[in-house]
């Protein structure tokens, strides 16, 4: 017999009392000892796991239950709230889709603009490009001008709209 088995054997009378509904006949010290053992012994805890309050006096008076009409009112509010939640969830899906479309569109736009910038550098004579991207109507850029050496940065505004910052390096040189 190992140490764990010995500990189980020590509390066996207490466990048997608890399992037969006689927990109340134990004193607080014995209950705390049994509790400490159960917290560390899965086997004994499993034996206690199914215990319920069937027939155990609780020393508190029964609760008056709400009338049927009250339950009906509560149910109507639950059903109404669940309905609203479903609609809201659908709305959230649409917002998520728009964000996805916007993000995908922005990525595509950024890639194209980088390409234009590269082409612009390769061909100094070409400094203007017309661009119109509207995947799902989420992103639309009417036009962008790229002059030699002009840099730009693409960011997303607080309303999820794309913002293009053109860095005018020539103006910085002016007095």
């Amino acid at each position: 017999m190992n140490a764990q088995d010995e500990r189980c054997r020590d509390v066996a009378p207490l466990l048997a009392r608890a399992l037969s509904g006689g927990l109340d006949q134990l004193d607080g010290v014995a209950v705390d000892r049994l509790a400490a053992h159960l917290d560390g012994c899965e086997r004994c805890a499993a034996a206690m796991s199914g215990c319920a309050a069937d027939g155990v006096p609780t020393a508190v008076p029964p609760i008056a239950m709400p009338a049927d009409a009250t339950w009906e009112r509560v149910w109507r509010r639950i059903a109404q709230a669940s309905e609203t939640a479903t609609v809201t969830a659908s709305g959230a899906d649409i917002v998520r889709f728009r964000r996805f479309a916007s993000t995908a569109g922005l990525a595509l736009a950024a890639a194209l603009m980088m390409l234009i910038a590269i082409v612009g550098r390769l061909d100094p004579g070409r400094d203007t490009a017309e661009l119109r991207l509207a995947p799902g109507g989420a992103v639309q850029i009417d036009g962008i001008e790229v002059a030699d050496g002009t840099s730009f940065v693409l960011t997303i505004g607080s309303d999820d709209a794309p913002v293009i910052w053109v860095i005018d390096e020539r103006s910085e040189d002016k007095p």
Partner: peptide
């Protein structure tokens, strides 16, 4: 754990 549950119920009752 279950032992803690049992102890709390006992002392509450």
């Amino acid at each position: 754990p279950i032992g803690t549950v049992m102890s709390r119920i006992f002392h509450a009752r």
